[in-house]
Design a binder for these strands. Structure first.
Lengths: 181, 181
DNA sequence: CTCGCTTATTCCTAATAGGAACACTAATCT
DNA sequence: AGATTAGTGTTCCTATTAGGAATAAGCGAG
C-alpha cells in the first residue's frame, strides 16, 4: 500500500462497508445524517476526489450506468479497512468548540452576552439530540450482540449521552452567571 | 473591515487579549497548553501567516527587537475581537472522534480489538484530564466573579467534566462488550 | 568551547472546508 | 402537454487548515 490514506478515505470505506453501493451524492447524504455526529461530514468535493483515489487504488469498485456512478467496497478495500482498524492508532479526538472558545473570552463582553449565547446553544443541543435520537431509533431491533448495527447503536447512545451531559453542564454555567449579577 | 477573518485569527487575538505581547512561538505554546482542549491548536505555519495578516490589517502591533517579534493587541484589534464576540454566530461544535469512528465499524474486527482500543482511550482521557487539571489549578484564586480568569476557569471546569463523562461512558461500553462474550 | 536544548521563523505539501456552477431527472401544477 | 420546482449527481474553484521539515540563532551544562 505504501502510504496511509487520509482518514476521510477510511470514513467513506466505512460507510460503504455496511452493504449497498452508493454514489458520491448518497455518501454525502449518509455522512450528513450519521457520520457528522462523530466526524466531520466531508465536503462534496472531497467525497468525489477520495472516491476517485480509492477507485484508482482498487479499494472500491465503480458501477457506472452512464449518468451516475455508484461505488462499493472491493475485497481489497475491505481488507485495507480492516487492516487500518487493527493496526493504526486512533489518536485523541479533536474538538472545535466555538461556544467554549467564546466563553473563554467572556470577560470582553460580560455575562449577559455570554448567557444569551449559552442559552441558544442549549437549544441547538436539544435539536441535535433529537436528530441523533431519530438515527438511534432507526437502529433499534437490529442492535443486539452479534447483529450488524450493534456498534452503530453503541456510538449513537454515546452521542446522546454526550449531548445530554453538555446540556446539563451549560445549564449549570448559566445559573452561575445569573448568580454573579 | 469588509471580510470576516478565519476563526484561527480570532483565537489568536483572544490569546493576546489576556495581556502580554507574545511571539508566534509563544502563541503556539499557549495554544498547545490551553486552547487545544476546546479548539485545535493551529499549526506553526498558520500562526505566523495569521499574525502577518493581523498585522497588515492593523489588529495587532509588532514589537520587534531584531531577532524576534512579539505581538500585542491594538485598540482596533481589541474592538474587532469584541465585535466578533457580540455579533457573529458561534455555530455548532465540530468533533473529530477517531475512537467513535472506529467503534462504528466494530463489526469488522470484533469485540476484543474494540475493547482494547477503548481501554487505551480511557488511559488517554485520564492523561488529558490531568493536563487540563493542572491548567485549572493554575487559575484558582483568580477565578471569582468579576476577576479576569473567571471565564477561563469555567471553560476548564467544563472540559474536566467532559473528560470525566467520556471516561464513564466508555467504561460502560467496555462492560457491555465484556458481557457480549 | 561545543554539544544539545529551547526559541524563533520560514517553507513546503497535502488535506479539508465550503460552496457555486452545471446538468440531468422526476414529480407537480396549470 | 408545457412550465416550474425539487431533488440527484458531478465538477470546479478558492481559501483555510494540518503537519512537519528545514533553518538558524541563543543559551546553559559539562
Amino acid at each position: 500500500m505504501g502510504q496511509e490514506l487520509p482518514i476521510t478515505a477510511y470514513a467513506l470505506l466505512g460507510l460503504l462497508s455496511f452493504g449497498d453501493p452508493l454514489t458520491g451524492y448518497e455518501l454525502k447524504q449518509r455522512a450528513d445524517r450519521t457520520l457528522r455526529f462523530y466526524w466531520v461530514s466531508p465536503a462534496m468535493s472531497q467525497v468525489y476526489t477520495e472516491l476517485e483515489r480509492l477507485h484508482r487504488a482498487g479499494l472500491v469498485m465503480a458501477h457506472g450506468d452512464g449518468r451516475s456512478t455508484s461505488y462499493s467496497l472491493s475485497r481489497k478495500g475491505s481488507a485495507e479497512l480492516t487492516r487500518w482498524m487493527k493496526e493504526s492508532e486512533p489518536g485523541f479526538p479533536v474538538l472545535k468548540h466555538p461556544v467554549a472558545l467564546r466563553l473563554l473570552l467572556g470577560a470582553l463582553v460580560g455575562p449577559e452576552t455570554i448567557r444569551e449565547m449559552l442559552t441558544r446553544h442549549v437549544k441547538a443541543l436539544e435539536e441535535e439530540h433529537a436528530a441523533l435520537g431519530e438515527v438511534r431509533e432507526s437502529l433499534t431491533g437490529r442492535d443486539r450482540p452479534g447483529e450488524p448495527y450493534r456498534y452503530p447503536a453503541m456510538v449513537a447512545d454515546w452521542g446522546l449521552s454526550y449531548f445530554a451531559h453538555e446540556k446539563s453542564v451549560i445549564e449549570e454555567l448559566v445559573e452561575m452567571l445569573d448568580n454573579d449579577r
